[in-house]
Amino acid sequence: MKLSFIAAALASAVALCEGSTKMVIGYFPNWLYANYPVENIPFTKYTHINYAFAVLNNLDNVPSFPDDWAVEAGLPQVVKLAHESKTKVLLSVGGWTGSKRFSPMVASPQSRKAFIDWNLNFIDKYHTDGVDLDWEYPGKQAAGCNEFADNDADNFLLLLKELRQALDLKFPDEYKEISMAVHVQPFIRSGIPMTDLKAFVPYFDHVNLMTYGKGIFMFFFIYMY
């Protein structure tokens, strides 16, 4: 998939902020503590740390951690040191092997609310700065175990709207960000890549645009109004 395709699809949906502050985003996996102490993270070089990953693989459709102890032991220090450097910390939910239940989660108001409430409680407990949604393939299976449906993209938009409203209501005095990791190909609706993504723009702050090659992983970031 050529980058020009996604660029064309996004052109009618986004406007890059002129003179906007540069953003540098890094992922810190919560299983890395033993080999890389959080004190070694050069927080001043980053604007955002995405704390990865809370996975969405359980039948209750709310995120969980394979290693809860690591979150309790290390995340408070990550947030403390990051905020001292004026760096934001977002929880990344999903990932390549952690997105199995995104599709059924977004499919009903009840499960979307449970997902949103879980994230609100997480932010409240750990004083993080928002949510990074790493569901790269709405409408497409991607990893072999991922569930998907024709209307994933439409339901994902409902989740974004409801999450934005809930964050603003819960934290009226401290803006919480929403970011997304998306594939270089636009979201799939009924088996076809979407060409108009305008409806998504008001509900998130930036996108990490993922591209993959042989032995190569890259991401591009798009800052939204």
Score class of each variant (00 low, 15 high):
P138W: 01
Y225E: 15
S190D: 14
S20E: 14
I49W: 05
L209K: 05
N57H: 04
Q141M: 07
W118Q: 06
Y36P: 05
I6V: 13
Y137C: 04
G215F: 08
P202M: 07
F156M: 11
V71S: 06
H83N: 12
M105H: 02
K88D: 04
D168K: 09
C17I: 11
F122N: 07
L157F: 07
H127W: 03
L90N: 08
A153V: 03
L120W: 01
L10M: 15
Q141I: 08
Q165C: 07
P172H: 08
V24I: 11
L3A: 13
S64R: 09
T211I: 13
D205C: 00
M210V: 12
N208D: 11
Q185T: 15
I6A: 09
D205L: 01
H183Y: 13
Q77F: 02
Y175H: 12
L32Y: 12
W96L: 02
A107C: 01
L167G: 05
G94I: 01
Q77C: 05
D117P: 00
E147A: 06
T44G: 12
D173M: 01
Q110E: 14
E72V: 10
E162N: 04
T21P: 10
V55Y: 06
D150P: 09
K170H: 14
G130F: 01
E72H: 13
G191L: 03
P186R: 03
G19R: 03
N208Q: 12
R189T: 04
A149I: 00
A153Y: 03
A181K: 03
F65K: 06
D117L: 00
F156C: 05
W135S: 09
A13Y: 04
R164W: 01
A7L: 12
F43E: 05
V106Y: 03
A149D: 09
W31H: 09
Y203E: 06
N50E: 11
K86Q: 14
E174S: 13
M224Q: 14
A54V: 01
E136T: 03
W96Y: 12
V89S: 12
R112S: 01
T21I: 07
K161Q: 15
F219M: 10
K113P: 00
F115E: 03
G95S: 06
E72R: 13
M180D: 06
G130C: 04
M23G: 06
R101F: 01
S190H: 14
P63N: 03
A143M: 04
V93F: 06
D67T: 05
F187M: 15
F187C: 09
M180I: 07
Y223I: 10
